[in-house]
Amino acid sequence: MRWWQQTWKQWQRAVEQLGRLRWNSVKSLASLFLVGVSLSVAIAACSGNGSNSAQNPAASPVAANKQDVELTLVSFAVTKAAHDAIVPKFVEQWKQEHNQNVTFKTSYGGSGSQTRAVIDGLEADIVHLALALDTSRIEKAGLIEPGWEKEVPDNGIVSKSVAALVTRPDNPKGIKTWADLAKDGVSLITADPKTSGIARWNFLTLWNSAIKTGASEEQALDFVSKVYGNVPILTKDAREATDVFFKQGQGDALINYENEILLAQQRGGENVAYIIPDVNISIDNPIAVVDKNVDKHGSREVAEAFVKYLFTPEAQQEFAKVGFRPVDETVAQTKENTDKYPKVQNLGSVKDFGGWNAVQAKFFEDGAVFDQIQAKINR
């Protein structure tokens, strides 16, 4: 089946190339014809003499040969509630359309930890991670083919959020802006950028807030150092940070995804005091198929279908219900969601800082800015 899948991809590429060629290119047409013949032979070989596709012409090649498919979805911690709602909908739809049972194995944790687990051998079919840098690391390890972000809409960004600043009820410390987190006597809870993709977004949010309000690089470093000096504990991921703040009662403030705060508010059944500062950053989370693993498992067709399903209005509405800002504009523009997600006036992007490779090198590599800050505060 791996050979068939490779042939299918060759067919798709040939079709795309043909659209860019002049029709008088006989050589190109001949190449396309040969690929088509190879594909037909592959399908015939995979189908077998008594295949289900003969009985059900609409059945897919995978569905015709394998009744049950198992997908392994590896994601960062705060997406669990969304996927718990979306996966059953996809499974039901796929069963109706293809008469094939799909089951999911899932793994949730800090994005950096999940990335290392996949590179070290966790055979994920799909990865939904906190930042594109983590997906790129899996690509560099040879597990994801280059160009993964072009396979689906929005450069692979399937969920997004902004940073929220949470305070205690009645806000006794008077925390209103990012700048207030550097004040003496303020205790902040956030996750560790070394293990959590969300925590890198938090760090970048703080740095962005300083730069966008006129600070120099030196002043931004001083500000962020003071903020992290007010952090008593760095948790391993955003979910743990939320638990430390709400369940253990530690800290005067918490930085986290807006979606994580909204979800905590839903689960707790009471209002959570939080602010979405006007100087903020777009927190973009990519999705990708792990090519090497889906080819090994024979699960490419279903994995790619699930990834595409996540961009549908039905799936995006489930993301919106648990606090993610929809990437689908039709969902984002409903009154329910415009009321729920106020527009951010000064919304930055990781691109403003050169992209994730530049950000990683400057701030998070061993010995870079974050390590220097940690050494300065003797953590």
Results as ranks from 00 to 15, higher is better:
101 N>R: 13
140 K>S: 09
112 G>T: 13
80 K>V: 06
86 I>Y: 01
124 A>K: 02
99 N>E: 10
138 I>G: 05
87 V>I: 05
125 D>Y: 01
99 N>D: 15
95 K>A: 14
92 E>H: 14
93 Q>F: 13
82 A>R: 03
116 R>G: 03
83 H>P: 00
104 F>P: 08
92 E>W: 10
140 K>M: 13
153 P>F: 06
152 V>D: 04
84 D>E: 14
107 S>M: 13
87 V>Y: 03
123 E>W: 07
85 A>N: 07
83 H>W: 14
149 E>M: 05
116 R>M: 12
91 V>N: 03
98 H>K: 09
100 Q>V: 07
127 V>A: 15
110 G>C: 05
102 V>M: 06
93 Q>I: 06
132 A>P: 15
88 P>T: 03
148 W>M: 03
134 D>K: 08
142 G>H: 08
131 L>V: 11
119 I>T: 08
130 A>F: 03
123 E>V: 13
119 I>P: 07
90 F>P: 01
122 L>T: 11
124 A>V: 01
121 G>Y: 01
105 K>Q: 06
99 N>G: 09
115 T>Q: 06
85 A>V: 01
153 P>G: 13
96 Q>P: 11
152 V>N: 08
141 A>H: 09
104 F>C: 09
104 F>Q: 02
143 L>K: 00
93 Q>W: 12
121 G>H: 01
104 F>E: 12
137 R>E: 10
92 E>S: 15
114 Q>H: 06
115 T>A: 11
136 S>L: 11
149 E>A: 10
89 K>L: 11
153 P>D: 15
85 A>F: 04
132 A>Q: 13
113 S>V: 04
130 A>G: 02
96 Q>W: 08
129 L>C: 01
139 E>M: 02
100 Q>T: 07
125 D>N: 12
147 G>W: 02
116 R>K: 15
121 G>P: 02
81 A>V: 11
85 A>S: 10
119 I>A: 01
128 H>K: 04
122 L>C: 07
110 G>A: 05
85 A>K: 14
153 P>V: 14
147 G>H: 04
118 V>D: 00
135 T>D: 13
135 T>Y: 05
121 G>W: 00
108 Y>D: 05
92 E>F: 06
146 P>L: 09
129 L>E: 00
102 V>W: 05
119 I>H: 09
126 I>Q: 03
103 T>H: 06
94 W>K: 03
116 R>L: 09
